[in-house]
């Protein structure tokens, strides 16, 4: 059951990315190009997705537990620290160079553009490096 519903959730997410235009790096880069070929469409993606999730989450949280898991597992961290902001900055630079964030990069794989086939393995290596950095850096400053 879990893999089936995991697959369906991913499929709905992927169709949403494609329909919205977010799966196309050209559209993402034009959204980010505020002083050039600005295409504000992606603000509608973020708005539609966030508002839908805002309402839907509150309905989901009325249940005692999720349907397929023993309990909810929601991030509890609330502090804004150097790891969060430096990570977000690095991600933003990479997003601005390639026009891909992780979801659209996955949906681009079946079209097999050479740039995609370079980006995705590099992203996976980056995730491994980033996880190592997250557990090592700044640790001397934590208590």
């Amino acid at each position: 059951m879990r893999p089936l519903f995991g697959f369906l959730s991913g499929l709905v997410f992927g169709i949403g990315l494609i329909l919205s235009g977010m799966a196309n790096p050209a559209k993402v880069l034009n959204f980010l190009d505020i002083f050039g070929a600005w295409d504000p469409s992606l603000a509608f993606v973020m708005g539609g997705a966030s508002l839908t999730a805002f309402v839907g989450y509150r309905l989901a949280w009325r249940q005692d537990r999720p349907a397929l898991m023993p309990s909810f597992d929601i991030p509890s961290a609330s502090h804004i620290d150097g790891k969060l902001l430096s990570g977000a900055a690095l991600f933003g630079i990479g997003w601005g160079i390639g026009g891909f964030c992780p979801g659209p990069a996955w949906t681009a794989v079946p079209m097999a553009a050479t740039g995609t086939l370079v980006f995705v393995p590099a992203m996976l290596i980056g995730i491994v490096i980033g996880r190592a950095l997250k557990s090592s850096t700044f640790q001397t400053r934590s208590t």
Partner: peptide, 22 residues
């Protein structure tokens, strides 16, 4: 189209929360 696609992304996020709690 972007609003419609965004709503689908939101529906998927709600599915993951309601089904997996994540």
């Amino acid at each position: 189209a972007s609003l419609g696609g965004g709503i689908l992304i939101g529906v998927s996020a709600v599915m993951v929360m309601a089904l997996f709690g994540r």
